[in-house]
């Protein structure tokens, strides 16, 4: 694969250049504020060679140990389905499934995930062979801008597995009984995925359909 060069980034760069002086002046105070951060270490750490297993394929890559799993997926393996929203574990857009469990890929290092099975949205389904959850999101219009959608779908798929495995939630009434497939449970369990377009009710309908629950 050649140089990764997404068109949106190019667009933003071009816009910044052509917009000229006004923007530069505006950015100056921010740049000054950032200078209080400690300077980067003079010597960069040695890169490490790691083997990542993603969607059933193995990838040997040399990376800076600081690389999050999210950045490794997007910038090194070009799996850009996984999105970077807040980069601090608050929005859920970067949700991927590791060893069957959903996690935020921005809050783990790629080096820490060597030896684990990583599934991204690209591994759940393809345009010609959609995962049931992907098809349900389309049917129920479970998105508007679509940025949170890959995270929502990975999260929803793993969430249903968590209920099946008997993992309780904050809204589970009786801790000593198996949790049920209900909309109340889905809503609580999906709270780690934020949708700023507010497609929540449609997302819930998509999940309910896959779970076989009437809304």
């Amino acid at each position: 694969m050649t140089e990764f060069n997404p068109s949106r980034r190019k667009f933003i760069q071009t816009t910044a250049v052509t917009s000229g002086v006004a923007i530069v002046a505006k950015l100056a105070p921010e740049a000054e504020a950032k200078s209080v951060l400690k300077p980067q270490q003079a010597t960069q750490p040695a890169k490490v060679n790691i083997l990542l297993r993603v969607n059933g394929s193995e990838h040997q890559i040399m990376i800076d140990p600081r690389t999050t799993l999210l950045d490794a997926l997007r910038e090194r393996l070009y799996l850009t389905g996984t999105k970077k929203g807040c980069d601090q574990g608050q929005c859920g857009a970067c949700t991927v499934i590791v060893d069957g469990r959903r996690i935020t890929s921005c809050l783990t290092l790629a080096v820490m995930q060597e030896g684990h099975d990583i599934t991204t949205i690209e591994g759940l389904g393809t345009p010609t062979n959609l995962h049931l959850m992907q098809a349900a999101f389309i049917k129920h219009d479970g998105y508007q801008c679509g940025f949170c959608t890959p995270g929502q779908i990975c999260s929803a798929v793993a969430m249903l597995d968590e209920i099946k495995a008997g993992i309780p939630s904050h809204v589970t009434t009786n801790l000593n009984k198996r949790p049920e497939m209900t909309n109340i449970e889905f809503r609580e369990r999906m709270s780690g995925n934020i949708c700023r377009c507010g497609a929540y009710s449609n997302i819930q309908e998509a999940i309910a359909e896959v779970a076989g629950v009437r809304t």
Binding site: G89, R102, I103, T104, S155, A165, P168, H170, S191
Partner: peptide, 27 residues
């Protein structure tokens, strides 16, 4: 989710489930 914790130390289960999001609790 541990069976003994849910049965005998429910306050611990409840506190954990009230914290963070499912993704973060998995990590």
């Amino acid at each position: 989710a541990n069976e003994i914790v849910r049965r005998d130390y429910a306050v611990l289960s409840r506190a954990l489930l009230a914290g963070a999001s499912a993704q973060l609790r998995n990590q």
